[in-house]
C-alpha cells in the first residue's frame, strides 16, 4: 500500500521530470540532421518551443509544490497490488493476443480486472468474460469485417 501523506515530494519529482523531459526533447531534436532550408521554419522549431514550455512548466510545478506547508493535507492511500494485477493482465494481452486468440486473452483481462476489483465469484466471472469476448469476436469478425485473432480456438 502506498500512502501519500503530502503532495509536496511527488509534486517536486513531477516538476523535475517535466523539466528533464523538456531538456531531453530539445537535445534529441538537435541531433536531427538539418534539412535544406526551403521553409522559413523547419521541423525543429515547434519541438523546441514545446521543450522550452515543458521546462518552464516543470519549474512552475516545483515552485507550486514547494509552497505547500506540510501537515495541511489529508493523507491519501492507494492499494498497489490491484494496480499490479491489472497491469499484468494488460501486458499479458500484449504478448498473448495473437497466439492465444482474442476470446481467451480478453477473458483473462476481464477476469484479472474483476479480481483486482475484489470480485471472488470465479465461475460467474469467467462465464461473463467468455460471453463478452465471444460476443465481440462474432460481432467484429462477422458483422463489422474487422478481424480479431482466433488463436488456438479455431472453429
Amino acid at each position: 500500500m502506498l500512502r501519500m501523506t503530502s503532495y509536496k515530494p511527488y509534486g517536486v519529482a513531477f516538476g523535475a521530470a517535466l523539466a528533464l523531459l523538456g531538456a531531453a526533447m530539445i537535445w534529441v531534436i538537435s541531433l536531427l540532421p538539418d534539412t535544406a532550408a526551403y521553409a522559413a521554419v523547419g521541423p525543429k522549431m515547434f519541438p523546441r518551443l514545446v521543450g522550452g514550455g515543458l521546462i518552464l512548466t516543470g519549474l512552475a510545478v516545483i515552485r507550486e509544490a514547494m509552497s505547500i506547508v506540510p501537515g495541511d493535507e489529508d493523507a491519501i492511500e492507494y492499494d498497489v497490488l490491484p494496480i499490479l494485477a491489472i497491469s499484468a493482465g494488460l501486458i499479458f494481452a500484449a504478448f498473448a493476443l495473437e497466439r492465444l486468440g482474442w476470446i481467451l486473452t480478453a477473458t483473462v483481462v476481464f477476469f484479472v480486472t474483476a479480481w483486482a476489483f475484489g470480485e471472488r465469484r470465479r465461475l460467474a466471472t469467467i462465464a461473463i468474460g467468455l460471453a463478452l469476448s465471444g460476443g465481440t469476436y462474432l460481432l467484429f469478425n462477422y458483422a463489422l469485417q474487422l478481424s480479431l485473432p482466433a488463436g488456438i480456438l479455431r472453429f
Binding site: F117, T125, L132
Partner: peptide
Amino acid sequence: PRPWLYGGILV
C-alpha cells in the same frame, strides 16, 4: 457490479 463493469471497460 463494479468489478464486472471495469473488467468490461478494459476488454
